[in-house]
Simulated assay, not measured.
Amino acid sequence: MLAQARELALERGEGLSEAQILEILQLDEEHIPALLELAHQVRLRWCGDMIEVEGIISLKTGGCPEDCHFCSQSGVFSESPVRAARLDIEELVEAAKQTAKSGATEFCIVAAVKGPDERLMREVEAAVDAVAAEVDINISVSTGILTPEQAHRLAERGVHRYNHNLETARSYFPEIVTTHTWEERRETLNLVRAEGIEVCCGGIVGLGESLAQRAEFFAQLAEIDPEEVPINFLDPRPGTPLEDQEVIDTPDALRAIGALRLALPKAVIRYAGGRELALGEEGTEAGLLGGINALIAGNYLTTLGDPAERDLDMLGRMQLPLKVLNRVV
């Protein structure tokens, strides 16, 4: 299988089929180093050697009406410790400045909603304008399911990327979310792409899906062909339906990283939440030499990540060049 993957992904820049992805996810542990080495070669050939760093911040946290079973921001789960809160524009601009100082090229403004109402749209537009006026950084937005008019407004504001994760395979999605559909999420991706905004779409590995469903998910992401794919590993949150779900083990997490790179040879694949639990320091470094070419530095929306300085030190120690807007450091 690795020989076939070398021909397709490395030599031709083509992603593996769903059946081939499943074979990769089922590789014996002894073959994981060879998988990661191939994934690294694919990344270098089709994406280059630079690592893209991003910071994220929540404009509106908690109180979401949706029932995504992994998410502590859902207002449906009364036992979740996360409560609704909003950030003012000055705080958000300061966060963007600090993010830029870390060497990041991307700053993502996130809101915990099914989709933005008019009040939130105006807040997001004001936030984008304020950050753009004071910080030299690409601005991404993640505010859930959009209407065509909302997607157009974000494009007019110069939003660089829109994040809207499919989260998991279409066949498994109803086990994880019941208040909206996989298809609704997919339509939002169509809308933002039609407006010329780059698509950022990934999901969470380790939600209880089978390996076949994981392969299905990666193949569905490849069909969308997003510019960026954030890969999260479930960090079970207290008070959510998945609070007792076991964390994916490191070999499975590394197989997933390698398989995702071979499914999407030319995408930015970004470490997101849960890597600290699923991989640890050694596994995180293995993934950076196994197909990953971006990461979120610092904290996530409701969970703690490694300090940004620690991530930058790691990249320096590994001699991985950091992508910035106008130069490489």
Rank of each mutant, 00 (worst) to 15 (best):
R6W: 12
R6Y: 11
E7Y: 14
A9E: 07
E11V: 07
G15D: 00
S17K: 14
E18R: 15
I24G: 00
Q26P: 00
L38K: 01
H40Y: 14
H40N: 15
L44I: 00
R45H: 10
C47W: 02
V53L: 15
I57T: 15
K60E: 03
G63Q: 06
E66Q: 09
H69N: 10
H69W: 11
H69C: 13
H69E: 09
E79T: 05
P81A: 13
E94V: 03
E94T: 06
G103A: 11
E106S: 11
F107D: 01
V110H: 03
A112L: 01
K114A: 01
R119Y: 10
R122Y: 07
A127D: 04
V128D: 00
D136V: 15
I137V: 15
S140V: 06
V141L: 03
G144N: 08
I145N: 04
T147M: 12
E149R: 15
E149C: 12
G158I: 09
H160L: 09
R161Q: 13
R170M: 13
Y172D: 00
F173Y: 12
H180V: 09
E184G: 12
E184R: 14
R185A: 08
R185M: 05
E187T: 13
L191G: 02
G196T: 07
I197E: 01
I204L: 10
G208E: 00
R214W: 03
F217V: 12
I224S: 11
D225N: 14
P226D: 13
P226F: 00
E227L: 04
V229I: 15
N232R: 07
L234V: 00
P236T: 00
G239V: 01
P241M: 13
L242E: 02
L242Q: 09
P251S: 09
L254C: 07
A256G: 04
G258R: 02
A259M: 09
I269E: 06
R270K: 09
Y271K: 06
E276L: 05
E276T: 14
E276S: 09
N293M: 12
I296C: 07
N299W: 10
G305M: 05
P307E: 12
A308H: 03
E309N: 08
D313F: 02
M314C: 05
L315P: 13
R317C: 02
M318A: 09
M318I: 06
M318K: 03
P321W: 05
P321R: 01
L322K: 10
V324A: 07
L325M: 15
